[in-house]
Design a protein around this nucleic acid. Structure first.
Lengths: 184, 184
DNA sequence: AATTGATATATAAATGTTTATACATTCTAA
DNA sequence: TTAGAATGTATAAACATTTATATATCAATT
């Protein structure tokens, strides 16, 4: 279960609630690892049972209590162990658009092209976001917390993958649109 | 449930058993949509209940009976409907390597570089396979069944995405390795 | 004055997916 | 000649993930 390690990774920076973990994920790892709020709460509970995290309640004025999770020594050890274990195989991907395209020979040309143009727009937008907004967020983070300079280098590497991936998707869509227009 | 449409897509070409569907998937869609044998059998059963496919038993000499599935008119309609429905959102990805890298600031340089070099080798091999073996399989298919020429164009487009994706991964790994070597 | 969005936690049910296992036969390679 | 791979179908259990729902408060907006 990899979500466990995403959560341990964040809790290794500082203690947090499930709600905060979701927010951190949404602005950082979501492009390569995401989770729903409900899954985060359920996984934290399981991790507490395994002794990887501990939690305590913090009362708040007016608002509901917060359950703050802290990583344990056992949790840190488990995380280090996971980090050191190399990824020895390629991960299988799922790409809905490719699945649809694979079986689309019966559709008419115009319908396929509409699909591809829509996708191009989406990937183009995502590419821009990685290049500008996401990049700025990481740079600001690195400037404000110089003790996390090494971390910021790695965060930016994951951002850069996203940028290259989206550019590749756009390039492939341009190629495929041209192919459909001329040969299909 | 997208697996359903992968199965309908194949059954739209010809009636098949669950075993044969698995084999077809493994040599064609597996790079962007895969499934375990057990999941295929379970999904076929559910599809039969929904009236999208029908099955009949074929006795064999020596070997166990084959349960051959055939797509129904309802199944064809469902498939066409799905094909025509555009994919209006980007699909969230999961990339285990990026998750690990994101939290790897505590690891030593050498350990990270070993990880990245291993990944580079895997992606390089996969890129070669798309460029040569996979390409040859599709070309041979297209040559043998000219009535599927349009289909083969789309199959090759999905193969080409795989090729570009793997090349991008290799390029990103080279960049990241260089960055770690100089700045980390 | 009422609605929406943000803050905050959580469960239930359904769905999707993997891993392990069982059974039975035939062909091929060590 | 014996083990393993390929052919073939299928279920159980576990694990992962999504969707829907419930509750409660505060701040800002309409």
């Amino acid at each position: 279960m990899s979500l466990q390690y995403a959560l341990l990774g964040f809790l290794n920076y500082q203690p947090m609630t499930g709600y905060e973990l979701k927010q951190f994920m949404d602005v950082s790892t979501a492009n390569f690892w995401h989770a729903k709020q409900s899954q985060i709460y359920a996984t934290l509970k399981k991790m507490a049972k395994m002794g990887l995290v501990e939690s305590h309640i913090e009362a708040q004025n007016g608002r509901p209590d917060r359950r703050v999770y802290t990583i344990t020594e056992e949790g840190r050890a488990d995380m280090q162990n996971w980090l050191a274990r190399p990824v020895t195989e390629l991960q299988p991907k799922k790409e809905l658009l490719l699945l649809k395209l694979f079986f689309s020979a019966g559709l008419d040309k115009a319908a396929i092209l509409t699909q591809l143009h829509l996708q191009r727009k989406l990937h183009q937008q995502q590419a821009e976001q990685f290049k500008h907004e996401t990049k700025a967020v990481i740079q600001q983070f690195a400037a404000n917390m110089p003790q996390l300079a090494k971390d910021a280098l790695l965060w930016d590497a994951t951002r850069r993958f996203g940028e290259l991936y989206e550019e590749t998707a756009v390039r492939w869509l341009d190629e495929t649109i041209a192919m459909i227009e001329s040969d299909f």
